[in-house]
Structure formats: C-alpha cells, structure tokens
Computed example of a mutant assay.
Amino acid sequence: MIAKPAVKPARPWFSAGPTAKRPGWSLANLPTNLMGRGIRAPEVEARFAYGLELTREVLRPPEDYVLLYTPGSDTGAVEAALWGMLGERPVQVVAYENFGLTWLTDVKDHLGLEPEVLTAPWGELPDLSLVDPKKDVVFPWNGTTSGVRVDHADWIADDREGLTICDATSAAFAMDLPWDKLDVTTFSFQKALGGEAGIGVMVLSPRAVARLDAYRPDRPIPKVLRIADKKGFDRTLAGGVVINTFSVLTIEDWIDALEWARGVGGLPELIRRTEANYSALADWVERTDWVAFLPDRPEIRSTTSVCLKFVDPRVTALDEAGQKAFVKRFKALLEGEGAVYDMEPHRFAPPGLRLWCGCTVETADVVAATPWLEWAFQTAASELAG
C-alpha cells in the first residue's frame, strides 16, 4: 500500500465551476454598504457599470465592442444570443462536448431551426474547415466537459456574412481570444475568475449589434433573454443597467476578482498563471502510467478544464458503471483527507478525472495535488483486486 503524501495543497479546490476563489480572497473584504439598496439606485447602477468597465480593462476586447450582463450565468448569455439573433440565415452548431450539444438542442428543438451539426467524439474537435462563412455558427471555444479547446481561428473568415457565437466561459481570462473573429462572446463570473454564480456577460461586436438592430425574430423572447427592444439593441444594457434583479454581493465579488486580476498584471499574467498550472499537471501526466489526457492531440488540450482518462487495465476492463464507481471511490478517498476536492468529470463525460487549472489556482497546489492523485489511484486500484 502506498503511503499517504505528507503535504496537502494549501487550497485544495479544483472544481471546474464554480472555480477556486482568487488567492487571498475573503468574504470580509467585500463592501456591504449597498446591500438592501434598490437595483435601480444610482449608486448600485454605478457599481454594475464599474464592473463592466473593469471587465473591459482586463479582458481587452476592441473599443467598439459592447459588454452587458445577462441573467443565468453563461447559459443565459448564450441563450440570449440564440433566441435574439438566430433565424435570419442558416446556422451551424459545433457540438463536440456537453454544452455544444446543449446549444444544439436549443437551436433545433426549442427554436425550431434546422441547423447543420459539426460533431466529434469526446476528446476531439470536428472538422472546422466545414464552417460556412455564409451561415451563423455557434461553438464553444473551450470544451469544459471534454478538455478540448479550439486551437486557432483561421477557419473563421474575415469576410464572413454570418455571425460567430462563441461560448467562451472557460476560456475568457485564461486564453488569448481572437476578437476580430468573434461576434458574440459569452462567459460567466464563476469560471475563469472564481466569481459567484448567476450572472453572465456578453461581448458583442458591431456586427452583432447590427443584427440586433435590424433583425426581429419571429418568436416570443422571454424577458430574461431580451436584449433588444422595439428599436433594436437595448443600449442601456451596455452602461451596466441589468435586465432583472441581480445580487449586489455577487457584483462586489466580481469587482474584487477583477481588481485582483488587474493588480497581478492583467490578462497576460492570468494566461501565464493558467499555462503554468497546466504545465505542472501535464508534467505529472506524462510520467504517470495509469492516466492520460482525454484529448490525444496536444494542440487541442484545454489549459483550464483539464480532462484525463484512465489507461490502467484494471480500470479500463471495467464496464462504464464500474468505472464510474471507481471515480466515486477515488473522489471519496481524496475528499476524506481534505486533499483534493471536486476532481470528478462532468456527469455526461467519460469516466476519468477533471482538474481546473485556471488562473485563480496556485501552481504549488497543482504540484502538491499530484501525489495525492497517485495515492488515491493506488488505494482504489488495490481495492479492485480485493
């Protein structure tokens, strides 16, 4: 039996959402002077507007792109785009992991459109050269549930006629997004910067705003997804006005995360931290014989939501139910020791491991986690032998 490691991660949080809070975070540090104030109070609206200004400052989209909040986290942001913009022209959906498949269901079954589907097995990307510049395209930049990311944007035409609608919730603030190729970009507070859940952000190019100004979908749009009025895009939203009542404390937490991000060096440093975390985990995977990356191709591996698969015959010989039971035991061993929390894969993904390596995680904690992963595997595998 392998001995338990002597050192635990100081911050053992590796969930892919909500993700780890930023280093040094404390609830006591968040301002509470606006708690209980009305959502339309000038001071409250000013804080929401400041949150958008900081988001722009750290994320660095082009000046003529507009930012706004949506209810419902990244899900609400994506669905606001789907409901409010699709239908003017044919649409393609890139569905290579759970959330791409979810957007496909929305487009096909709920909006009643007939999308062309580009799909691939778990751990792979579809052939993106098949994306038609005359069509709208919906795609995740980073597959949070599959550990796969889009590795370049050359497949997006500069002279495209359709819109690109990009779910970037586990890519924003961790990867260098090609803004000139993206018309609608969405993310949530609780992924890349460890914010609290419930609020999403949309980043709209001038082309996306023009679509909202000119196109009126022939469908009712729920209020929480309504980002256009009778005149077109509701420009008050770009000033921090919110569609419905949001949590003031959640906004203060978001501002706290953004001010930390700005203070440590902005987007370049956030990307560097993410890549350092990924490299530390990748080094361990490369020298460990019972685990491998779910994506075989290095160039498409996510640096944030790192998904791994078992390759040890003792585990691969099990059926799917047996492998899921093995993951459950693996998780229980780690969490029972307070060593690594929430390392299991998404419930619809293949059995394996998933560890968040975004910028709010410390590289030293990734390094400290790996001996515990080894201990948990060897312990659980020895139990299989009985």
Rank of each mutant, 00 (worst) to 15 (best):
V340K: 09
K331V: 11
P313Q: 10
D319A: 11
A321E: 15
D312E: 08
E335N: 10
V327D: 02
R314D: 13
F330W: 13
R314W: 03
C307S: 15
A317M: 10
Q323T: 00
A332R: 03
Y341G: 11
V340C: 12
L318G: 08
A321K: 15
Y341R: 14
E335I: 01
E337P: 13
D312I: 02
P313A: 11
E337Y: 11
S305R: 01
G338W: 14
K309N: 04
L308E: 08
R329M: 11
E335A: 04
D312W: 01
A321G: 15
S305F: 02
K309M: 00
V340R: 02
V315C: 01
F326T: 04
E335Q: 13
E320I: 10
L318H: 12
S305Q: 10
T316D: 08
A317E: 13
A325F: 05
F326L: 01
G338M: 12
V340N: 09
P313V: 11
L308T: 07
G338I: 12
L333C: 03
K324L: 07
V311E: 03
F310S: 07
V311P: 00
Y341F: 15
G338S: 10
V311R: 13
G336V: 13
F326E: 05
L334H: 04
P313H: 08
R314F: 08
L308A: 10
V327I: 10
R314C: 02
V340Q: 06
D319H: 04
S305C: 14
A325C: 10
D312G: 11
A339E: 08
F330E: 00
C307Q: 08
K331G: 05
K328R: 15
L333W: 10
L333R: 12
L308R: 01
K328G: 05
G322Y: 07
R329S: 12
D312C: 05
E337S: 14
G338D: 15
V340F: 09
E335G: 05
A339V: 09
S305D: 14
V315L: 06
G336A: 10
L334I: 04
D312L: 07
V327G: 02
C307I: 08
Q323W: 03
A339Y: 07
Q323E: 10
P313L: 10
T304L: 09
F310K: 02
V315G: 01
L333M: 12
A339T: 03
K309T: 07
K328V: 02
A321C: 00
